[in-house]
Amino acid sequence: MFDDIITKSKVKSPWLYHLNTGSCNGCDIELISILTPRYDVERFGIKLTGTPRQADIVVVTGPLTSQSKDRALKVLSQVPDPKVVVSLGSCPMSGNVFKGSYSIEAPLDRFVDVDVSVAGCPPKPEAIIDGIIKAIEILKDKRG
């Protein structure tokens, strides 16, 4: 009974971890703006966490540079299951204007399963909120 309450309440308060893999800071700023009072994503119980070990949703930005690839995959493996990986912007999905470069390992879905992808360069904060709401639904399904 106690576990049921915990799993139910866990769905209502997913913790978010922001992973930057060589992003230009555009998507990062838009992601930070949804935590500000204007868009206030804490209405959905979301809280930004500093450690991947407590995260439920991982938001990946950046084109996955060769320097950050091993570290990024290490961090993603530290996130406990069930987790939802959200790719933000064009870079983690395809490499954007950097694709074909010797130092870019994009797309991200070569290495991990990406559940939700938000297009845009950078996406509008409203679009990120839509993506995170979708991620919460997927998290609910994964928890059963």
Binding site: M93, D109, D115, V116, S117, V118, A119, G120, P123, K124, E126, A127, D130, G131, K134, I138
Partner: peptide
């Protein structure tokens, strides 16, 4: 239209 969310890449 700014909201472009996809669970599958081919939707985009």
């Amino acid at each position: 239209q700014y909201s472009m969310i996809a669970t599958d890449k081919n939707e985009l």
